[in-house]
């Protein structure tokens, strides 16, 4: 199903190893390396964590301690698209709870979950620095602002449509 168990592609391994070499110590590349793996596979599987750790000369515990520390590294599978809906104060004032409720209903999932079709994961995120267009959300790498329930739903529908 997922490619989480397949070894990291040679080219990705080489990029991680190169990065580790240029750092003062290889461990400095840990977040970047995890991010690179995640950009490719959507999340960091156990197998990939082990492989990355060995590329960086770190123990799996050490690297996983870092992976689980940061908000943006996913150690569980996510959908093909990730919606990160801001839950910080400006967006909250501007009605992010309503947007979230509508998204939940539309997608049939709660925050932290992935739609059964594997299309969309809904996550809360801290302030996206888009407060002048609150409520805001990040869909994959694209920032959307001035959301209301309808635009959010339309975006979510688009993701599922495009994904299936």
């Amino acid at each position: 199903m997922s490619t989480a168990d397949t070894p990291l592609p040679a080219e990705l391994r080489a990029r991680i190893a190169d990065l580790a070499r240029t750092e003062h110590q290889p461990r400095a590349a840990s977040v970047s390396a995890l991010t690179m793996v995640q950009e490719r596979f959507g999340w960091v599987s156990d197998a990939h964590l082990l492989e990355t750790a060995s590329l960086l000369g770190m123990s799996p515990a050490d690297l996983d301690g870092i992976a689980t520390y940061f908000n943006l590294i996913f150690r569980r599978p996510v959908g093909r698209h990730v919606i990160m809906l801001c839950d910080s104060v400006s967006c909250w004032i501007m009605g992010r709870d309503t947007v979230c409720a509508r998204l939940q209903a539309r997608l049939g999932i709660r925050p932290g979950e992935t739609t059964p079709d594997g299309a969309v994961t809904l996550l809360p995120i801290v302030c996206l620095g888009h407060c002048d267009h609150a409520p805001a959300m990040l869909v994959d790498r694209t920032l959307h602002g001035d959301l209301d329930a309808e635009t959010a739903e339309r975006l979510a529908d688009g993701l599922r449509g495009a994904a299936s």
Partner: peptide, 24 residues
């Protein structure tokens, strides 16, 4: 350096820890 995401990374010493590839 693109952060892994944690508010505390903005605190200057935690930022340094993060840059060293540790829990920030």
């Amino acid at each position: 350096h693109a952060s892994g995401g944690r508010y505390i990374c903005g605190e200057e010493t935690a930022l340094l820890t993060a840059l060293e590839g540790r829990r920030a």
